[in-house]
């Protein structure tokens, strides 16, 4: 992570080039942010020679199976990209803490759960992102979403999208998790209303349904 070598006072001078080399090698392979993506990652240019860019550029995000070009800045989080830069905005993913403490912004990136508030959108180019909207709609809910409704795994509902995504991921990773393991798997998400017991009920109902051969939609 070359930019981390910079003295703190120079952080504002991080160029898009050094940023890309350091932080987004995976994304760069996907042709991140247009034509000026780095061609040679071998030699870091001297700071004085770097062209410092700011402002927004277009990049492609693949969200819920649809590829969309969005105008973002290097510092734009995936959460902000989803909620304020997509058209139409995808507001199911919630912002609660902004510091990776609560899990309300949980999405899947490459199939793995991640806090979108701590993920730079620029690192997601070429990587499939799945948000709560990608799992189902009110008329065609996933089994997890249906179980959250049946077991009343929500009160105010603001944490619910994060819990739904986290539950999908937990049951993917640990399909046979016992209650303690489920609590561990869901410990990255906070609920203020205190709905946890019904969330656990929902997760266990899905486990039972899938074990009986029910289709995990």
């Amino acid at each position: 992570m070359r930019e981390m070598d910079l003295p703190p006072d120079d952080l504002s001078a991080i160029s898009r080039r050094s940023f890309l080399k350091g932080a987004t090698q995976v994304a760069a392979a996907g042709g991140l942010m247009g034509a000026s993506a780095p061609q040679d990652a071998a030699e870091p240019p001297a700071l004085a020679e770097v062209e410092t860019l700011s402002g927004s550029s277009a990049m492609e995000l693949s969200v819920n199976g649809t590829v969309q070009s969005v105008e973002i800045e290097p510092r734009t989080t995936l959460l902000s990209a989803l909620r304020t830069h997509m058209d139409p905005p995808l507001t199911g993913t919630k912002e609660v803490c902004g510091t990776g403490s609560c899990g309300a912004c949980t999405v899947l990136i490459d199939g793995q759960p991640a806090y979108s508030c701590l993920t730079l959108a620029a690192t997601c180019s070429g990587r499939p992102v799945t948000t709560v909207e990608g799992f189902g709609s009110p008329d065609a809910m996933s089994d997890v979403q249906q179980a959250f409704c049946d077991k009343d795994g929500m009160m105010c509902g603001f944490c619910t999208p994060g819990f739904v995504v986290a539950t999908h991921a937990a049951l993917e990773r640990s399909p046979g998790a016992d209650l303690d393991e489920l609590k561990y798997e869901l410990s990255g998400n906070l609920c203020r209303c205190g709905t946890y017991p019904h969330v656990f009920d929902a997760a266990q109902a899905v486990q039972q349904d899938r074990a009986r051969g029910g289709e995990g939609r």
Partner: peptide, 23 residues
């Protein structure tokens, strides 16, 4: 009786619009 809440589906699918979500 146990009544599943009527806004469960919109909340569980991220379609429920909170003030935060108004655009």
């Amino acid at each position: 009786r146990d009544i599943p809440r009527v806004d469960g589906p919109v909340k569980a699918t991220g379609q429920a619009i909170y003030t935060h979500d108004v655009r």
